[in-house]
Amino acid sequence: MSPVPHPPQRPPGSRILASLGLPAPEPIAADASPHSFPDGGRWRTEIPSVEGPEALDTVLREADRLSVPVHRVSQGSGVWMLTDAEITEMVRAAAERSVELCLFTGPRGTWDTGASTRTESRGGGPRARGHGAVVGCVEDAVRATSLGVTCLLVADEGVLWTLHRARTAGLLPPDTTLKVSALIGPVNPAAYAVHERLGADSINVPSDLTPDHLTEIRRVSRAPMDLYVEAPDELGGYVRMYETAELIRRGAPLYLKFGLANAPALYPSGAHLRETVLSTARERVRRGRLVLDLLARLGAGDAMSPPGSRLPGPLCRFPDDI
Rank of each mutant, 00 (worst) to 15 (best):
P3K: 03
W43T: 01
R284N: 11
S36Q: 14
G308M: 01
T117L: 01
Y228P: 02
Y242N: 13
D64L: 03
S202W: 00
L247D: 09
P27C: 07
S121Q: 08
P306V: 03
E96N: 13
R218K: 04
E157R: 14
R297C: 03
E283K: 15
P268T: 01
A155L: 04
D212S: 15
R249C: 00
L311G: 12
G40Y: 07
Y242W: 05
V239H: 15
V91W: 11
L66T: 03
A115T: 14
T45A: 14
P312D: 03
S305C: 14
H213D: 15
D321W: 07
H213E: 09
G52H: 08
L311V: 04
K179E: 06
L103W: 01
M225A: 05
I28N: 14
G76Y: 02
E216V: 00
V50D: 09
R122W: 04
L295I: 03
P264R: 07
P38S: 06
M1H: 13
E86P: 10
V187K: 15
R297I: 00
D302T: 11
A265F: 11
M225Q: 12
E96H: 09
A133Q: 10
T150S: 15
V138I: 04
R249V: 02
E283G: 02
V59W: 05
R65P: 04
H131C: 05
S2N: 14
V159W: 12
A85N: 05
P268W: 01
P38C: 01
T176G: 07
A155Y: 05
S98R: 15
D321L: 13
G130C: 04
S98E: 12
N188S: 10
P211C: 05
T113R: 14
A133T: 03
P264F: 01
